[in-house]
């Protein structure tokens, strides 16, 4: 399904989203931005949960105004804080979602539930009540419910928050495996999640698009601007002219990774990462 956002704006008291436009059809699109950048609002607009103040979202030829439930039928949505009725088991929760999504045939429903439970690896927990599941298992159930009915668009909002490192890796693998059949929009402020899963990235900053395109192009845009400095202490020039990304103590003093247009002191160029590019893009636009 081709998703087109055209000049999307959302205003409450302040402007939350301003002139957001992009087109995407398949794969995983990482939606990156700091807290308050407007990621959840954008996801909720795409999910048809809230209406934009201005602009239109096209889902192939469908629009919010004319085809609301047809669109919702094609969307799987995992909200930021996935919660459900505590006394229901995994199977019962999925049964209810199947019914809500109009899967009324008993056999088809049983197949669908089994398939989704297997897909997210919850076979052993299918009789467990929701309140007894760990954070990672709840997220898996969240994905399973979103996948019911095989939606063409899967929206996942901050899915790895609160997961332990193992669960986070497993979750990323799960997302990658699901991307072959559909468009996935992954909203997160964790850069690593996007770097490990996505082909495309949209960087949101204060409600505006700072970058939209391939991750590799974003990384390439900061090649020649990422430096590593080793010394006894951080020199003043780095603090004044550079953007420090990270620093850690070494046996001989300190090692600093920073962004700068030109070489500073006795620093050396290093290969850029998505984090470098993300920080550089936001800082550059933020100061404009």
């Amino acid at each position: 399904m081709k998703l087109i956002l055209s000049n999307i704006c959302k205003k409450y008291k302040n402007t939350v989203l301003n002139q957001i436009s992009f087109e995407v059809e398949s794969g995983i699109l990482g939606l990156l931005g700091e807290n308050g950048a407007g990621k959840t609002t954008l996801i909720e607009i795409i999910a048809t949960l809230i209406k934009p103040t201005d602009g239109t979202v096209y889902y192939d030829d469908f629009t919010f105004e004319n085809d609301l439930y047809k669109i919702r039928h094609q969307i799987g949505y995992l909200p930021q804080k996935f919660d459900f009725f505590p006394n229901l088991t995994v199977e019962e929760a999925l049964y209810y979602i199947c019914k809500l999504k109009g899967i009324n045939n008993k056999e088809q429903r049983a197949i669908e539930i089994d398939e989704k439970i297997r897909q997210v690896g919850l076979e052993e927990q299918k009789k467990k009540k929701f309140c007894m599941l760990s954070g990672g298992m709840k997220q898996r159930l969240g994905i399973a419910q979103a996948l019911i009915g095989n939606p063409k668009i899967l929206l996942v909002d901050e899915p790895t928050v609160g997961l332990d490192p193992h669960e986070r890796v497993a979750f990323r693998q799960l997302l990658s495996s699901l991307a072959q059949e559909r468009l996935i929009i992954l909203s997160t402020h964790i850069i690593e999640d996007v770097a490990m899963t996505s082909d495309m990235v949209l960087v949101l900053h204060k409600g505006k698009v700072n970058y939209f395109g391939h991750i590799s192009s974003l990384i390439e845009s900061v090649r020649g601007k990422v430096w590593r400095y080793k010394g006894d202490s951080i020199v003043k020039e780095i603090q004044q002219q550079g953007i420090i990304i990270g620093s850690h103590p070494t046996d001989t003093g300190i090692e600093v990774r920073f962004l700068a247009e030109h070489k500073i002191a006795n620093s050396v160029l290093v290969s850029p990462t998505l984090e470098d590019a993300y920080i550089y893009t936001n800082r550059k636009r933020g100061t404009n």
């Binding site: 999910a47 949960l49 439930y69 949505y77 909200p79 919660d83 209810y96 979602i97 809500l100």
Partner: peptide
């Protein structure tokens, strides 16, 4: 209405 009811259940109810 709890948030999940709005996002997951009422979402599909006409």
């Amino acid at each position: 209405i709890q948030l999940f009811e709005k996002q997951l259940i009422l979402y599909h109810i006409h």
